[in-house]
Nucleic acid binder design. Structure first.
Length: 111
DNA sequence: GCAGTGACGACGA
DNA sequence: TTCGTCGCCACTG
């Protein structure tokens, strides 16, 4: 496992329940700005045994990355709703559930 | 080393 | 709001 992947996993694990973050945010927090695709690769490569809130990672616009109707899509939607996140038609209002700048700073100690 | 592909993101129509 | 295109970088054959 690469150091980059470790950082990505750590950034994802830092997302609090009931909140969501974009791939770009995760990549940036992992010290890999602009490498959003690498976050997706890391999730694909993540072991099943690893406890990772992968379902809290969405597209920058708040839409679920997985294809509509796929098992992962259903699983992500189900888990998010279980945490109180409002998933409307495969989409989450980032302005309500996304990580704000202040919250982001509080979580990852930026600034 | 080259070409194809992808759990992405920003833009323009 | 939705769709298509381009740029990005890492992985794979």
């Amino acid at each position: 496992m690469d150091e980059r992947y470790r950082r990505i996993y750590a950034a994802i694990a830092a997302i609090p329940a009931g909140r969501v973050a974009g791939y770009g945010q995760i990549a940036a927090r992992a010290g890999l700005p602009g490498r959003a695709r690498l976050v997706g690769a890391a999730l694909r490569d993540s072991p099943d045994g690893m406890q990772l809130p992968w379902y809290r990672v969405l597209h920058s616009n708040g839409t679920i990355a997985l294809p509509r109707g796929s098992r992962g899509f259903r699983e992500q939607t189900k888990r998010l709703r279980a945490e109180g996140v409002d998933v409307r038609n495969g989409r989450v209002p980032m302005q309500a559930f996304g990580l704000d700048a202040d919250l982001d700073r509080a979580l990852w100690g930026i600034g």
